[in-house]
């Protein structure tokens, strides 16, 4: 945990510093008449101090066991793939409409763990897309974007 805590505490220190600076820009006001940045200034100030404490704590702790690697040996590529898919989906939904983009997304997601059964992947993607479309759009009146093709 040592290296992890050191890294994360430095990250939070960075966050707190930038929030601190922005809070001052927004106007802190006085204790009698706090401004827009008053609370965030306080919060980021304490966050900064606490992350320093965390950093010191982590650095002073003697750790004999070697920490488990964060990413190595794990299937982090899968996670990245899912994240990219989700971002693409959000990007494409207004253009392609709910039906097409959802079908593509579901195909991608099912494919991750079912690479061999392509037909099954296609069929279940079509099924889920159509069922959710009817349940949410037709029945519950959700308002999905129509997209270029009006689908």
């Amino acid at each position: 945990m040592r290296a992890l805590d050191q890294t994360s505490s430095l990250f939070w220190l960075l966050v707190s510093l930038s929030v601190f600076v922005e809070s001052i820009r927004l106007g802190v006001g006085t204790p009698q008449n706090p401004g827009m940045g008053f609370l965030t200034l306080g919060a980021s100030g304490i966050l900064g101090i606490l992350s320093l404490i965390l950093f010191l704590q982590a650095s002073l702790k003697k750790e004999k066991i070697k920490a488990e690697p964060l990413f190595a040996g794990k299937l982090w590529r899968r996670v990245l793939f899912v994240l990219v898919l989700l971002i693409l989906y959000s990007r494409m939904m207004p253009v392609l409409g709910y039906l097409i983009s959802t079908f593509l997304l579901m195909t991608g997601l099912f494919w991750i763990l079912e690479r061999k059964r392509i037909v099954w992947v296609f069929l279940s993607s079509i099924m889920t897309t159509l069922i959710t479309y009817f349940v949410f759009s037709k029945w519950l009146n959700c308002q999905f974007p129509d997209g270029l093709f009006g689908l």
Binding site: W12, V15, L47
Partner: peptide, 12 residues
């Protein structure tokens, strides 16, 4: 300590 830090991030 980490929980308090998260609470502060939540406030921000």
């Amino acid at each position: 300590l980490k929980a308090v830090m998260m609470a502060l991030v939540g406030i921000i």
